[in-house]
Nucleic acid binder design. Structure first.
Length: 152
DNA sequence: GCCAACGTTGGC
DNA sequence: GCCAACGTTGGC
């Protein structure tokens, strides 16, 4: 069992969108960064637990949890010329980008804000604090448990 | 393969 | 809106 963090811009697709999906399962697509892609393609496994993190807003925060619901599969948006995520260099034979299905689990009553994460010694090695721009990233088990306690 | 130019992310 | 960090592109 592994733990991950997925970033989302809440006005585009955030935890409320996920919770509103049929069966509360949504496709996590549009990832267009190789490092983030590699985590999805090579390491995400059904049953893995993820934090949903809202970025690009005034008070960025971990806002809830979800779980990986499917193996990685080619992101359909890369083949759609109408999509912002269309990639003409990708092909169905050699897809470049991958997505997974994610199932909503919980929305934190108390979001854990980035400014607070920064104050706790056990969280100082989080990828979130070290590498600002990575949109999918690993979380350690101690970090997972610590943040869940903060959200209670 | 190097590197300058450029684009994007994302916190503040 | 600004800007730091960093990823990508493309000429050479």
């Amino acid at each position: 069992m592994n733990y991950w963090l997925l970033k989302a811009e809440p006005h585009i697709y955030g935890i409320d969108h996920l919770a509103a999906e049929q069966h509360q399962i949504g496709r996590w697509d549009g990832i267009r960064n190789y490092q983030a892609r590699n985590f999805i393609r090579d390491q995400f496994k059904p049953g893995d637990l993820v934090f949903i993190y809202h970025s690009g807003i005034k008070n960025p925060a971990v806002v809830g949890t979800a779980c990986i619901q499917s193996p990685a599969y080619p992101d359909p948006l890369q083949f759609n010329p109408e999509s912002n995520y269309y990639d003409p260099k990708s092909s169905t034979e050699k897809p470049r980008w991958f997505s997974v299905d994610v199932k909503f689990l919980s929305r934190f009553k108390n979001p854990v804000y980035l400014r607070d994460l920064k104050t706790f010694a056990p969280l100082q090695e989080m990828v979130l604090l070290k590498q600002g721009r990575l949109s999918t990233q690993p979380v350690t088990k101690p970090e997972w448990e610590f943040i869940n306690h903060l959200a209670q």
